[in-house]
Design a binder for these strands. Structure first.
Lengths: 335, 335
DNA sequence: CTGAAAGCGCTTACAG
DNA sequence: CTGAAAGCGCTTACAG
């Protein structure tokens, strides 16, 4: 039963009294093998404790059964949700996931990309770091390895993209705040170099224009995507001469920090100050008051990216796709 | 610059005017290569757009640069934290992580283990599903592939284990509740088949015995590890004739559900009913009132497991280790 | 279904 | 450092 030395397919074949080619067909689940032969081989595999070497098989057949996934930061539940969606979908089609996290570092991303290419992944799902170059993407594509960009576009890169309508999301959020009577609305947090920030800001602008409200640039402050940054930014914005009556946060993580600090200051979100987040992470509903936010359907987004990548790997040659999910305003208690 | 066909090491060698063996030494960073030769080869690699094929190299040299990681559920921040710790540590030593999630399904775990073995991982970190058999572990070990068990022991399996002192954790939690004057303390949630549940329950028992309080079996209800389960269980336990005045939750996820429901019922955790959780997930501090809990140092636990696995892979042959982290009571606002 | 041969891209081992 | 050969474990292609 237990076997200490490495068992190869040839040994299995000998044990079963068939040829190596036949054994190979059996492990790959070929149709043109008689039931009797299949059973003989499977029994030998059991008896010898044989493990199929997918790595060797991939080398010979020039195929791959792995997919690289590069995201920013597991600590943000938004990415966990994304990962869940991707992982579920990819596992369904027999792909194994190689994981990498960049923590927003360009160098880390470069290193991860190299590592994954060296491991001969069949494709890559990339949540790109700010400042990513389209040349890098194009180069990978030119090697025949499909790339699906997730959440953030890379300007100039002509490849598949799955993301959401951030402009619309920003607009929905700010429309709602305006409709609730707010006129001075801050936009807090997030790095302004990335497209999703720019797009949400665009939505913020659009909503103001539509309502005929002038934008006060001092109400827009960027920052890293952490709770700490939220804590910091809300203090900063409340110190200005004419502070905002409501805040649109770049995402829920920022909103978490903002709310923590507000409660500490004795202010009640939703009563004393309006707040809208972005992403609808599971935590949003656990806060009190519950966070009003824009859902970005992270799991679905992940699943879509996985499906798209899988189609590419299967060689369905179509034009680069752009899948843009529509955001949804989830009104809860903070506005 | 850009290259459409697969470039091999032999082509690089020819381009650089050296032998294949020399080129191989360069890509592996060997010391006994002159600086001039190294530069020539590196230039050719650049010019041709060569990608080192780690898969082929691993096949030939019978080594591996990947590690398999099997956990339950990414949606629980406890596992995200674990993953962060593991991932950071493993990346440091040049290992690539292959990820799998079981969602508590034995079959899924079996499938993931097979897949990882077929991918020739150098080792496996396993957060074992309830009901895992020690034979399976022993078999993998017998193939020379180290396994580190994380968080949950598998009875009978003689291999490395990194976890925490759950008995002590349970005891700390319940000691604290007793010291705060509670006498009827519920233990809610978690699957009783897994060792960590049994150990926390043991701690619960110990604290009661130490204080000379009888245990009322009707105060202990198990259940799945979800917020929904927390919501359900707190309702159930408050309906009994003589309800508890405090609750020790199997973990913070359960506590989250419990607190949500209590607040909905108009009860204030910490004032009307005492609550202690387990794990100290980042959310614990974001709740209001903030959750008193037992920290299980997830990131550290992950890092320790990764280091241990790495040592094993390096072939440091020592007795199977048991690393048991000490839990810590974090007193906040719910008790 | 079998059998013998070649090859995937690399490393190993060795004589020079 | 070079060069030629063998081999890691598999698949491919083909004649039988």
């Amino acid at each position: 039963m237990t076997q200490h030395k490495h068992v190869t397919l040839l040994q299995v074949a000998k044990h079963a009294g068939v040829s190596r080619a036949t054994a190979s067909l059996v492990v790959r689940g070929s149709k043109n093998i008689s039931e009797a032969t299949r059973e003989k081989v499977l029994k030998s595999i059991q008896d010898l404790g044989y493990i199929y070497d997918r790595v060797a098989a991939n080398l010979r057949s020039k195929s791959s059964s792995t997919v690289g996934l590069i995201i920013m930061d597991l600590a943000n539940p938004f990415y966990s949700e994304l990962l869940i969606g991707i992982h579920q979908e990819l596992t369904k089609c027999g792909q194994t996931v190689i994981l990498g996290t960049t923590f927003n570092s360009y160098d880390t991303q470069s290193r991860l990309l190299s590592t994954m290419l060296e491991h001969r992944v069949g494709g890559i799902i990339l949540f790109a770091v700010p400042g990513s170059k389209s040349e890098v993407i194009e180069q990978i594509l030119s090697w025949g390895i499909p790339v699906v960009l997730l959440g953030r576009k890379v300007p100039g890169a002509n490849c598949d993209y799955v993301g959401m309508d951030n402009v619309m999301g920003g607009q929905l959020a700010v429309d709602h705040l305006i409709q609730k009577g707010h006129r001075r609305i801050a936009f807090l947090g997030g790095p302004s170099q990335i497209t999703s920030w720019q797009e949400r800001k665009q939505g913020y602008d659009n909503a103001h224009h539509k309502a005929g409200i002038n934008i006060d640039a001092s109400l827009v402050i960027e920052g890293p995507v952490t709770r700490e940054s939220g804590v910091e930014l809300i203090q900063q914005i409340l110190r200005i001469p004419d502070p905002p009556t409501a805040v649109f946060c770049y995402n829920d993580i920022i909103a978490l920090g903002v709310m923590m600090k507000l409660k500490e200051m004795g202010l009640v979100p939703g009563r004393d100050i309006g707040i809208v987040g972005f992403d609808d992470i599971p935590e949003a509903v656990m806060l009190s008051p519950k966070l009003t936010t824009i859902s970005s359907f992270a799991r679905l987004m992940g699943a879509r990216a996985a499906t798209l990548l899988h189609e590419r790997i299967e060689g369905l040659s179509m034009e680069p796709q752009r899948i843009i999910l529509q955001p949804k305003l989830i009104v809860r208690e903070t506005c």
